[in-house]
Amino acid sequence: MNSQPSLNVNEKKKPMNTIFFLLFLFYVLALIYVTLLAWNYGASLGPAGPGGRNYNITPFRSIYRIAVYSPTIIDPIKILLGNVVLFIPFGFLLPLVVRKLKFSIIKVTFAGMCVSILIESAQFLFTYRVSNIDDVILNTVGTFIGVTAIKFIVFLKRKIHIFVVKKQPQ
C-alpha cells in the first residue's frame, strides 16, 4: 500500500500555472514600462520641437523609410526586430495563462494585435512618441511567432512519449 497521497493532475499543474502567471505579469509590467514610461530615442519631436504628436496610419511607410534611409544596418535591425521580439513573449505566455484560448493561433494573435493597438493609442494620447500602424503590424507578427512556437512545443510534447519505469512494490 502506498503511504503517500497521490496528486491529481490539477494539483501537479498548480505550481507551473503560478510560474506562468508570474512570468506573464512580469512581462506585462516590462511591456508597459518599455512602451509607455521609458524614454525612447525615437520619440516624436513634432514640427516645433519636443512635444508634438505624431502618428503614421499608412501601413509599411515607416518600415520602408527605416530600411531605406537609415545610415547603418543597426537601426533597422533594432527598431524592426525589436518590435517583433517585444511581442513574442505575449504570444508564448498568454495561452499558458488563459487556458480558454486553447492555443488558438487566431485568438492569441488577435489579442496581441488589440494590445498593440491599445499601446499605440496610449502612446499617442499620453506620451510624446510616434503612434505607428507599422508597430502594430510588427507586434502582431511577434505575437504570431510566439503562439506558433508554444503550439509547436505542445504538439511535440504530446507526440514524444517518455517512459518512466516504476518499481513494483514487493
Rank of each mutant, 00 (worst) to 15 (best):
L81E: 07
L81M: 13
N40A: 12
L118M: 13
G146W: 00
V97I: 13
V130N: 02
A38G: 05
I73N: 09
T35H: 06
L81H: 05
T109F: 01
G46N: 10
Q170Y: 11
Y55N: 04
V84I: 15
F103T: 00
R65F: 10
I66N: 08
R129C: 05
F163V: 15
S104N: 14
F155D: 08
A38Q: 12
Y69H: 13
S131Q: 05
M16Y: 15
R65Y: 14
L7E: 12
T109L: 03
F152N: 02
E11T: 08
V154E: 06
I73L: 15
I32Y: 10
F124K: 03
L45C: 06
L29G: 10
Y41F: 12
V115W: 01
E120V: 06
T72E: 12
D134G: 07
P59Y: 10
M16L: 15
S70K: 08
G112P: 02
S131D: 04
A122G: 07
T140A: 07
S44I: 05
H161V: 14
G146S: 07
G142I: 03
N83D: 11
D75M: 09
P89E: 07
F20R: 04
R129G: 03
N54M: 12
T143R: 00
I162A: 05
V164P: 01
V85F: 15
F126S: 05
I145Q: 00
N40Y: 07
F124I: 07
I73H: 09
F110T: 14
S131H: 06
A122K: 03
G91A: 03
E120K: 02
D75K: 05
F87E: 00
A43S: 15
Q168K: 14
G146Y: 00
T109P: 01
I73M: 12
L31A: 09
G49I: 09
K100R: 14
L81P: 03
N139W: 01
D135W: 04
I79D: 01
M16H: 13
N8T: 13
A48E: 15
K166C: 08
Q170C: 08
Y41T: 09
W39N: 12
Q123P: 04
K12M: 15
P59K: 07
L138C: 06
L156E: 04
H161P: 02
A149Q: 04
V141P: 00
K12E: 14
I105L: 14
S104K: 09
N56S: 14
N17Y: 12
I57Y: 07
M1F: 09
G91I: 00
T58A: 10
R129M: 07
L31P: 02
Y27H: 08
T127L: 09
K14E: 15
G46Q: 11
D135R: 04
T35L: 13
I119R: 01
L25D: 04
I57A: 08
L80V: 12
Y55W: 15
I137A: 03
Y41M: 10
S62H: 07
G46Y: 08
T143W: 00
L156F: 08
L125I: 11
V9P: 02
L101D: 03
T58S: 11
T72D: 15
E120S: 05
I117N: 01
N139C: 06
